[in-house]
Simulated scan of single mutants.
Amino acid sequence: MPLIRIFLFFLFLGSSFLKAEPWHLVQFGKSQYVPLEDFCRFYHFSTPDYYPSQPIHLSNGINSLDFLPNTSFVYIDGVKHWLSFPIVERLGQIWISRTDLCCLFEPLLRPGMIPTDRLYRGVVIDPGHGGSDKGAVSRKGTEKNYALDTARRLAALLKARGIPVVMTRNKDVFVSLDERIRMASHYPDYIFVSIHYNQAYGGGHGLETYALSPRGSPSTNSRRLYLTDYSPSPGNRTDSLNILLAHDIHSQIIRLHPYDSDMDRGLKRARFKVLRENSLPSVLVEGGFLSNSIESSLVDHESYRQKLAEAIARGILTFFNQVNPQKKKALQKSFASDGSEL
């Protein structure tokens, strides 16, 4: 494979917010990579000693990264993220894809550098399914009802903090995906949070949060690239905000299960229509598997759905504080399970 070393001035992938900096860009197959050494220098991580096929821990005093080269996920500040492309060992070095550099690491390591032209002030809450579409089913209930109940609880929490809320449905009715997107388009200074519960045959355990796949990268659950994956979509205009919102929410919901690390199935990428065609910063939350008897017994209880709503609300407030620093004083209060302020 020919080695191409190019000095970049970080305008690739539209990421002009990355300051001019010499980077070494290398092509492996159809993907482009930068060396870990450059990454560490830019984000002020100490460059680790290189031992082939050994786990790597990075820390700069503010953020931490943990990963195993040649795998497809990384822990960022203890939160599991699935990569668009694996971190690889090649030519005696470790390499990070420029897609993940621009659409994952940069927004999370430097959220204050995300360019935005508006003040985000409200939330479109999207309870999944509804009406004839039951979604996942447990022994005692259905996804459509649990998602609506969780959404109502989330709405109440946010309204209590003065945050405007719009529900794509507030009763048991079917709402098409196109209609959900159309409704969201009327609120350009809102974010979009879709709430679901999961189902899998033959197993399934844990919490997942989804953000839109960056252009030209595969979805986590398929790992295959299709021609349509290279097409631009409205949702990719807010790639940085999407992943920051997803990280802030996912880092809160996994805290509901501090003694079960397997509950963190990770922050994943997908091209769900409500993410792909949505012009708002958007995420989709999967609050547990109704096909899992242990998890469904939790979701069946109102107290668990309340805790999940509180965790999502904390993530939303964290996001608003990061992208709207002038509103920090108004949004700094958090939530406790008994409704009191923390």
Rank of each mutant, 00 (worst) to 15 (best):
I243W: 14
L331H: 11
T318D: 15
G128F: 07
K327P: 01
V285F: 13
A246T: 08
L212F: 10
I181S: 03
T220W: 13
R98C: 09
T99F: 11
Q27P: 10
G92K: 08
R110T: 08
A336G: 00
Y51Q: 14
F28L: 09
R169G: 04
P127E: 04
M263Y: 12
D49H: 15
L267Q: 01
A20T: 15
I249A: 09
G287W: 10
S138R: 02
L25N: 08
I243H: 10
R223Y: 12
N292L: 07
I114G: 09
A136H: 09
D38K: 11
R110A: 09
Q252I: 04
I94G: 05
R121H: 10
Y259G: 08
S213M: 03
G14E: 01
Q199E: 11
N278L: 04
R265T: 02
D149Y: 11
T228L: 12
Q306P: 00
G122M: 05
P188G: 01
G204W: 05
L241N: 00
E310H: 06
K30Y: 11
F9W: 14
S282F: 12
G128R: 00
W23Q: 08
G288D: 02
I254Q: 06
L317A: 02
S293V: 10
G206Q: 09
E37Y: 13
G202V: 07
S240Q: 03
I6V: 11
T47Y: 15
I316A: 01
L11V: 06
A336L: 06
Y75R: 13
P55G: 11
G128M: 06
N236I: 01
L280I: 00
A156M: 05
E179T: 14
I96C: 03
L227Q: 04
L108Q: 03
L227D: 04
L157V: 01
Q332F: 12
E21F: 15
G204I: 01
D248C: 15
E310N: 10
F272D: 00
D248A: 14
R98S: 06
I96G: 05
P35G: 08
V165E: 02
T116P: 05
I249G: 01
L290I: 05
I249L: 12
N145A: 11
G162T: 13
F17H: 09
P218D: 05
Y50F: 14
H196K: 09
P325N: 03
I114P: 06
L11Q: 07
G131V: 11
G112Y: 11
R224C: 06
P325L: 03
E21Y: 15
Q27M: 15
P234I: 01
V283G: 11
E179H: 13
P232G: 04
G135F: 12
L212G: 00
P232V: 03
S15K: 14
S132C: 13
S84Q: 12
S296I: 02
Q252D: 01
S219I: 06
K307Q: 13
S219Y: 07
I294Q: 08
H24C: 12
R265W: 06
R269Y: 04
R169S: 02
S53H: 15
F12I: 05
T142Y: 12
P115Q: 14
G206N: 05
G78D: 09
Y43M: 06
